[in-house]
Computed example of a mutant assay.
Amino acid sequence: MELAVVTGANSGIGEQIATGLARHGASVVLVARNRDRLEATRRRIAAIAPGVDLTVEPVDLAELDEVRGLAERLAGRDPSIVVSNAAVIAPLDDRTPAGLHRSLATNHLAPYLLLRTLAERPSPRPRRFVVVGGSPRGLRRVPVDLDDLNAETGRGLGWPPSFRPFAAYARTKNMNAMFVYGLAGRLRGTSTTVNGAHPGIISGGRLNRHDRGALRVFGSVLGAFSPGTETGADTPLWLATAAEVDGVSGRFYVKRRAVQTAGHTTDPERVERLWRESARLVGLPE
């Protein structure tokens, strides 16, 4: 039986992806910060897919030491599917004890550390890694500031101030695409694939729980006209399970179609520099 891992699995798109994997027959590890919410999610999925093995991993993905521990535990179980879905739009002054902006740590550094650690452990079976990113079209205007990954200067984050956390979040979503390309290049010739996916603009998740001011109003209006979490889960779940993408790696998908992301995400020098800076921030060799 396949073992699948889903981060951000306690609600929204993550719960829908985990439910789909359970229906697919996989054993599923549910990863999120709050144990009580995870247990409630586990019970909901168990009612839909009775008999499927479901375990919970209460981990704060903004805390890199906790991510390291999770990676070590999962490496021993050798998952064949890992879906990195967890994300947050955090205020710019929301910093971890290590001084990292919570959006950077949760949205980019955690999947970098987790997937890279798992990728570097040889596996006798094919593996699929899926990174849930953002809209390639919408993110063209917010290139990653490689001199300010941690959003310490606020440079280029725009106006009004209430939208700046969203701009910082958008940069981390571009980092997701760049990480996919960097990891796929390193995995070339192996049986492990990695691809990115945009779930679409959806309603029903908890991504916007920290929004304030004009950003909260904008999110409420947008959400009123957006499809639900089941629609958002479709492409990531398809990438994790579909036979037609077997062996495909290093691509980014929207509505099950491979698309081009912005040139600033595919530039090899920028991709490699992000890899090096991320390695430094998480304490891994380049």
Rank of each mutant, 00 (worst) to 15 (best):
K173E: 03
V28H: 04
E244N: 06
S226R: 01
T41I: 14
R116C: 08
R216K: 12
N150A: 11
S278G: 08
H101D: 14
M175H: 09
A98M: 01
R209K: 14
R33M: 06
L54G: 07
A47T: 13
R270T: 12
T117V: 05
T106Y: 05
L215I: 06
W159E: 11
R95H: 11
R155F: 15
E63C: 13
G154W: 08
L237M: 03
D65H: 12
K255F: 09
D211G: 08
L237I: 05
G138E: 07
G8C: 08
D94V: 08
V180H: 03
D36V: 14
V31W: 04
A49I: 07
A168Y: 01
E277W: 08
A98C: 01
N195P: 06
V144I: 04
D93A: 14
G158I: 02
F252C: 09
R155Q: 15
R188T: 13
R127K: 09
L70C: 08
R42V: 14
R73M: 04
L38W: 00
V82N: 02
S123C: 14
H198M: 07
G283W: 13
D60S: 08
F225I: 15
W275V: 05
E272Y: 12
P199L: 15
V254G: 07
G247V: 01
G51A: 13
D147N: 15
D267A: 13
L104C: 09
D93Q: 03
R33D: 03
L207D: 03
I45T: 06
S162G: 07
V142T: 07
A233N: 08
R257S: 14
A262E: 00
T261A: 14
D53S: 14
V248I: 15
E2Q: 11
A177Q: 04
R125T: 11
H108V: 15
D211N: 11
H210W: 10
V82M: 01
I13K: 02
G25A: 05
P122W: 10
R23L: 15
T266V: 12
V259S: 06
L284K: 00
R44D: 09
R140F: 12
L146I: 06
T106H: 11
R125A: 13
S226D: 00
L239A: 10
G138R: 12
S27I: 01
N150I: 10
H264P: 01
T261K: 07
L38A: 05
R42N: 09
P97W: 13
Q16Y: 07
E72D: 11
H264M: 05
Q260K: 04
V180M: 00
V131G: 09
N176V: 05
A167Q: 02
L284W: 01
V259F: 07
R43Y: 06
T55C: 12
